[in-house]
Computed example of a mutant assay.
Amino acid sequence: MAAAIIRKDADSDEVRQFLIGLARGTAGALLFALPMLMTMEMWFLGLYVNSWRLLLLCILNLPLLFLLARRIGFENIHSRTQALRDAITAYGLGIAVSAAVLLLFGIFYDQLTTSNLIAKIALQSVPASIGALLGRSQLGEHSDTEDEEDGEYSGETGYLHELFMMMVGALFLSLNVAPTEEMILIAYKVTPYHILALCLVSIAIMHGFVYALHFKGSHQVHEGQEWWQSFLRFTLPGYVIAIAISIYTLWTFERLDHTSLSQIMNAAVILGVPASIGAASARLIL
């Protein structure tokens, strides 16, 4: 009898923690995705975005959520099954929050077809689902010490894990600005000197965020280690990741169609500014 009561209490506590995680996930989806949910270009993209490119983005988002859930799921993650469940839950929250907000804003009242409605929600659900998982990291009451005790978190993480977090940060922040018309306008106005300056500034900001400014969660250069070693090992690969994510995001939103290679690189470097900041800050946030 006592064992049954203890087991029942444990199950109810697990359900309670999961429900709290869902609430935090909903809050995180709103907090991180609301700027995009209120962006006109994101609404219009649903009318003409290439369906295959959108499908690819949605498919790639699921393994990204799975890997992210392994680090910051709705509860302590002890198995791949739990991580997959949290990834699917986050995606579901992203879809639900996106549909609800767009409905409240009256975006669905413009005589849209079913395919247009699905495309609008699918576009918004990607950043919203990432925000749902980030909600636990930012809105939870756990501390770094508690996470270390649970085996979830350690200040020093593996190299591939660091690169993955950079990719998540770059993707999330680039999604905020990639669909906007300002990207095209800036690409039209800049000169090669601006592009070179933007590259150097982006790289300098990335290295400063992670190593030089001593933010909470930032890395410290180990004693006896030269600054250029961390620069070559993390900063430059991080910038390459930011540029690659920028190109992919622009391609998904059809910003690179019928453009020359120089125009593509200009747009990638411009979008690479927020993407590189997102990549660098991912280590601080996550």
Rank of each mutant, 00 (worst) to 15 (best):
L185A: 11
H194S: 06
A244C: 13
S276H: 03
F253M: 11
S230I: 08
F209R: 03
A268E: 10
T180D: 02
S218R: 05
Q220Y: 10
S262K: 15
W251L: 14
V177M: 14
L232G: 01
L250Y: 14
Y248D: 13
A267W: 09
I205D: 05
L261I: 13
V269D: 03
G155F: 14
T191H: 11
P237S: 08
E254G: 08
T235I: 09
K216Q: 05
L175E: 00
A204L: 05
A244S: 10
Y159N: 02
C199Y: 14
V168G: 10
D257E: 11
I186T: 01
E254K: 09
K216H: 06
V210Q: 07
Q229D: 15
L271S: 00
M165Y: 13
M265T: 15
L232H: 00
W251T: 10
K216L: 04
V221T: 05
T157M: 08
K216D: 04
T249N: 07
L271E: 00
I243H: 02
W228Q: 05
E181Y: 14
S262N: 14
L160P: 02
E152I: 11
N266G: 13
L261Y: 15
A212H: 05
L163P: 00
A197H: 11
W228N: 04
Y153F: 15
C199L: 15
I241T: 13
I184G: 13
G272A: 00
G158H: 06
P192N: 09
F231C: 06
V210N: 04
S154H: 02
W228P: 02
A267S: 08
I186S: 02
A268L: 08
T191G: 04
I205V: 13
G155I: 12
Y159P: 00
A197D: 10
P237E: 07
F209L: 14
W251S: 12
F215N: 09
Y248Q: 12
Y188I: 03
A204K: 01
S230C: 08
Y153M: 06
L232K: 01
A178D: 00
A170S: 08
S262P: 09
C199G: 09
M166N: 12
F164Y: 02
H258A: 12
M206T: 03
P179N: 04
S260N: 14
L163W: 09
F164S: 00
Y239R: 03
Q263Y: 09
R233C: 08
L171P: 05
W251A: 11
L163Y: 11
H222L: 10
L160M: 08
F231H: 07
D150W: 04
F234M: 14
E226D: 06
I186M: 04
Y153T: 07
E254N: 14
K189Q: 08
A204W: 03
E226Y: 06
Q263S: 12
V210F: 06
K189A: 06
V168E: 04
L256F: 15
L160R: 09
L185W: 13
P237M: 08
I241K: 08
Y159L: 06
L200S: 15
A212G: 03
F231R: 03
T249W: 08
